[in-house]
Design a protein around this nucleic acid. Structure first.
Lengths: 194, 194
DNA sequence: CGTCCGCTTGACTCAGATCAAACTTGGTGG
DNA sequence: CCACCAAGTTTGATCTGAGTCAAGCGGACG
């Protein structure tokens, strides 16, 4: 448990916390004020989609530090539920930042990592969408938009197909179907969800 | 380009480097001695699978720091190919580590992030395997093994199904097929690729 | 001018999703 | 202690939608 020693060396004082199985460590929407290091037990991070479907975002066990999702976010976007009884250490987020050196190389790099993680997670979530047209639409919606909602894809559709885990034919057909169903508008090099 | 300022403040001196489209920034197997910050242009990280299939692992553009995959690894496991002409800054990896404070909280947390990233990437790679039995087999192979090659899955097969993006029926059928084809051995609570 | 590549659509196939039903196991509560 | 319930496991039958093969179009580039 390397990280624990490092935290101790940095002069951070954890508070201990125990929870029973099925209790929540935090809920979606809670302010992120603390970071947790799991000592014993397992917990599951669950994201509930608008559709009501529950998605296991991550599982954490002994030695894992629940920070990735949270260091640079303000509020949680998932629930943390104990699979078993757990023991963990609680660190104050602001203390941690001070220990990291506030606006420092470490923070800058961590932020870059954090961005990568978010992108990877969103890619996995995209792949959980089974229908090709829904998946393509979700991909388009995630793209940065201008003030009118237009997106300017930087990848060829063929590459989009690869990142979505679809054949390029499936993507073309999805685009055609979405256009037919008035779920997107296409014009030259731009595209917009309706 | 926040990270650049932070690196400068930390006293790190970059070397500038320009490459033409289609040139390689690094190859699979190269020692990782430098970190790159992209200033202009785009590049693609490509991983070549044993099957010969090429997999786009990541794309990077201006402001991105090519470090995630590499800070805690010794050698690259992908090729970086310039899509366009590019300009970047080159930092020495060891200097960077010194600036981060060697064995410090930052490093410990970065390592945790790094692990998450690797796990997420492997999950995406799993999903690129189309056939259910191959995907399940690949998943099992990734699991930690004891000295005899046995794995002790910690998830119910139903949860495995969810993480693999398959229905649970498909996973059970895949396991049955793999057992029939002698591609795995099962016993009680453990399982082993043949 | 020819070639390559991205784009687009059609036809057919097949693997995985879905629905359904039965069995096992562990846990709860009367 | 046992009835009962919930959840995971297992197998069968059917259906659907994405992969694959095939073919044609147009623009870019040498």
């Amino acid at each position: 448990m390397d990280i624990r020693r490092a935290l101790k060396l940095a002069g951070l004082e954890p508070v201990h916390l125990g929870l029973k199985a099925r209790e929540h460590l935090f809920h979606t929407g809670d302010r992120i004020l603390r970071m947790y290091l799991v000592l014993e037990g397992r917990l599951t991070m669950v994201r509930t989609l608008e559709s009501g479907q529950e998605l296991v975002v991550q599982r954490a066990g002994p030695g894992e530090f629940l920070a990735e999702a949270s260091l640079f976010a303000d509020r949680y976007h998932c629930d943390a539920i104990c699979e078993t009884d757990i023991a963990c250490e609680v660190y104050d987020k602001r203390d941690l930042f001070t220990a990291l050196g506030e606006r420092d190389v470490s923070i800058a790099i961590l932020e870059a990592y954090s961005r990568s993680i978010r992108i990877l997670r969103s890619q996995i979530e995209l792949r959980n969408i089974k229908r090709a047209d829904d998946r393509v639409l979700a991909y388009l919606t995630l793209l940065p938009a201008d003030e009118d909602g237009w997106r300017y894809p930087s990848l060829s559709w063929k590459d989009v197909a690869r990142t979505l885990g679809l054949s390029h034919e499936a993507v073309y057909r999805a685009l055609a179907a979405l256009t037919r169903g008035n779920r997107i508008e296409r014009a030259e090099n731009r595209i917009r969800p309706a």
